[in-house]
């Protein structure tokens, strides 16, 4: 584990429709440091800026103002191509709606980031198979998303997020569409991934049970971090 923060935000603002009558300050001066191996939950009411924060952390968006460092590299200096490469090599995404590609099998969905990374076909398949086995879906590798339950889809999404050995795992309401039993399984998997890979994990949630699994808890309101506490 290196001492360099995985991500560091310094007075970051994200403003939509800046200067217009419908200007929205989604993030308003957020400063935050995420160390390698941290497990954070981000809570807050709708519109508090949780998803915007997640998009910035995932390099899907860029700050309007302030400074953001990804493992020491200023993000504002990166072009789209570099941010794409960093997403591919350093970040895993888990979404509430899973976002599996409907025309790909479970195995192919997991292998997709590896394909983008240029790994040879045989290695891709072996690694994807191993990841599916890790999430308990070794027997469903040929299944298409529509043939899987919601819990299974989210487990495939977790396997896909882990495919390239990310340093940061971002989960946006990962159990939002699951019943409590399956939600528990998914959270167990997420915890295991955190433990096994040493990746920092950021989970955005409304659910206190999900948040309780984290070691550090952020609470956001009106685009600001109003609380940052440690402990389970």
């Amino acid at each position: 584990m290196t001492s360099e923060p995985t991500v560091r935000l310094e007075s970051v603002r994200r403003v939509y429709h800046a200067g217009g009558p419908d200007e929205v300050r989604a993030l308003d001066g957020v400063s935050l440091t995420i160390a390698p191996g941290e497990y954070l939950s981000v809570e807050g009411p709708s519109g508090s800026g949780k998803t915007t924060l997640l998009n910035l952390l995932g390099l899907l968006d860029v700050p309007t103002e302030g400074r953001m460092l990804w493992r020491g590299t200023p993000v504002e200096r990166l072009g789209e191509r570099d941010r794409t490469r960093l997403r591919r090599t350093g970040i895993g995404f888990i979404f509430q709606r899973f976002y599996l590609l409907p025309t790909l099998t479970a195995l192919e969905n997991v292998a997709l980031p590896l394909l983008a990374g240029g790994l040879p076909a045989r290695e891709r398949e072996t690694r994807a198979r191993m990841l599916l086995a890790q999430v308990g879906l070794a027997d469903r590798e040929r299944s298409f998303p529509h043939q899987l339950s919601g819990g299974e889809e989210q487990r495939v999404a977790i396997a896909r997020a882990l495919a390239n050995g990310p340093q940061l795992l971002l989960a946006d309401e990962p159990t939002g569409e699951l019943d409590s039993t399956r939600a528990g399984q998914v959270l167990d998997l997420l915890e295991a991934a955190h433990r096994d890979t040493g990746a920092a994990v950021v989970v955005v949630t409304h659910n206190p049970t999900v948040a309780s699994r984290a070691d550090r808890h952020l609470v956001m309101r009106d685009g600001r971090v109003v609380s940052d506490t440690a402990g389970r």
């Binding site: 995932g58 899907l60 789209e80 191509r81 794409t84 490469r85 960093l86 997403r87 591919r88 090599t89 970040i91 895993g92 995404f93 979404f95 976002y99 599996l100 590609l101 997709l112 980031p113 394909l115 983008a116 990374g117 896909r160 997020a161 390239n164």
Partner: peptide, 9 residues
């Protein structure tokens, strides 16, 4: 999602 997980343009 392809763009998000880093599939090149």
């Amino acid at each position: 999602i392809q763009r998000a997980i880093g599939v090149p343009a």
